[in-house]
Simulated assay, not measured.
Amino acid sequence: MRLDSIAPTVLALSLASGAAAASIPLRPGDYGAIGLACDNQPNATTMSFDGRSFSYAHASKCTDTVTRRSAGTLTIAETCRAAGDGSPAKANTATFGLRRQNATRFVLIKGESATSFRRCGPPGYFNRH
């Protein structure tokens, strides 16, 4: 098989995987609730975003999939397969809304509750503080 005959397929697959990774348009890093200093965030108000999916103090190995885009809000189905420490747990799927304000700020919508978040630092920021 000639290399130039598979190049278009490889390029298409690369673009498709890049598009999937960019489906949640936020900068990777550790996020905390607005209204609290980054250095004073309790575990309940922190989350990490690796560029594709979120993880939390009590859930990790999560896969986030954008299921709908409507009026500036993304509906995200999230399946987490481990506890926050990485130990295996029964997979759990939840749905939430995310309204992006910019690349480092968003509003997380769960049911009737909405919480604003902002990026506090690079991935691992909360591990050091």
Results as ranks from 00 to 15, higher is better:
A37Y: 07
S87F: 10
R118I: 02
A83E: 05
A7D: 05
T75L: 12
C38Q: 03
T93K: 10
A94T: 15
C62R: 04
T93N: 06
N92A: 08
F96A: 10
E78W: 02
M47W: 07
R27K: 11
G84R: 02
S70W: 04
C80A: 11
A89H: 02
A103H: 12
N102T: 06
T73N: 05
S60I: 08
A12E: 13
S5C: 00
T67M: 12
T115M: 15
P88D: 14
G51N: 04
L11A: 10
D85P: 12
G32D: 03
A114T: 09
T46M: 15
A22N: 11
C80I: 15
A91Y: 12
R52S: 13
N102F: 02
S23N: 04
L74D: 00
D64A: 15
G124R: 09
P8M: 01
F126T: 03
I24C: 00
L36S: 14
L13V: 11
G86Q: 11
K90P: 06
L11D: 04
T104N: 15
S113R: 15
A89C: 07
F54I: 00
R52V: 09
C38V: 04
M1S: 14
N92Q: 13
P25V: 05
N92M: 03
S60P: 10
L36E: 12
T65Q: 13
A77M: 06
A114K: 10
P88F: 11
S17I: 12
A22C: 07
E78G: 08
T93S: 11
K110I: 12
A7S: 08
L13P: 10
I24Y: 01
